[in-house]
Computed example of a mutant assay.
Amino acid sequence: FKDGSAPDTSAAGVRALVAARTHLAASEVTDVLWSSDFRPRAALADRFRDGRIFLAGDAAHVHSPAGGQGLNTSVQDAYNLGWKLGQVLRHDAPAALLDTYEQERRPVAAEMLGLSTRIHRGEAGRGAATRQLGLGYREGPLSTGAAGALRAGDRAPDGPLPDGTTLFDTLRGPHFTLLVVGTDAELPPLDPELVRVRELDAYAPYGKGVFLVRPDGYVGWAGDDARGLAEWLRGVGASVARYA
């Protein structure tokens, strides 16, 4: 309890609590078969990587069950780390790419841990933040540039496509996606297995520009044209030079 007193888990204590917090009378609680004192645990690892060891999900952060932020954050950890491991192990990306996992994910986990704790204590309510659709990495080490309505680090917006599919359908998978929106910018040579290109008419959630979307659905690089794109791709193991 907030006053520091220990909860009364006896049958009488449970009846009194139910009567105080619900529309039921104490006498309507006829049997108490089992009761316990639940105390949530909140914890955040000091670091998410130590050499070849990586922490993700509940190994990295433990949340109150209020709202499900712990599960959502854990799934995001896994995807963030997964695509980076794939690039290093299969596509010769610099090993330093793995350091960006902690740099991007630990601040997100810390923020969600604080939010879920406040919700559990009744100090905050559920809202847009608990849905986690506004999370991003604008200040992260892999975010470069801006164009149209977006900055690198933003979550890539969805939208309908003329063939009846959606942008999220295009993004789905372990590949990078280069969206060329409302421009005829000249592109560097790209490996189609690693980077899939989709040209679109100008679209309000994006505006106009060139947007490189990471496998986890976040804009990694953005620009009015493609200058600087090749350098960014080399840094994540999607080098264009060897495919030219």
Rank of each mutant, 00 (worst) to 15 (best):
A11P: 00
H61E: 02
D224V: 13
R214E: 00
L190D: 05
F176H: 15
P215A: 00
L150T: 02
F1V: 09
L190G: 04
T73H: 07
A152V: 05
L161E: 04
R138N: 05
R138K: 05
K2G: 00
A60D: 03
G4L: 05
A244Q: 11
A185D: 14
E111M: 09
D163C: 08
R106N: 07
D191S: 05
L135G: 02
A93N: 04
T22Q: 08
R131A: 06
R242Q: 10
P160K: 10
T144D: 15
S116Y: 01
A109Y: 03
T170K: 14
L200N: 03
A222D: 14
V62Y: 10
L190A: 02
F168C: 03
A6Q: 13
N80W: 08
V32S: 04
G127T: 07
G228T: 13
R151T: 11
P94T: 11
A25S: 14
L24K: 06
L171V: 03
G235D: 15
E111V: 02
E102A: 09
A56E: 00
E123V: 02
V75A: 13
A230K: 06
S64E: 04
L24A: 11
G228W: 12
G51C: 03
N72I: 00
E139H: 15
F48Y: 15
G217F: 11
A95W: 09
G164A: 09
K208G: 01
A204E: 12
E199Y: 01
R242I: 00
A78R: 12
D92W: 02
A25Q: 13
A202Q: 11
P157R: 06
A19K: 12
L178Y: 15
W232C: 08
L167N: 13
A202M: 05
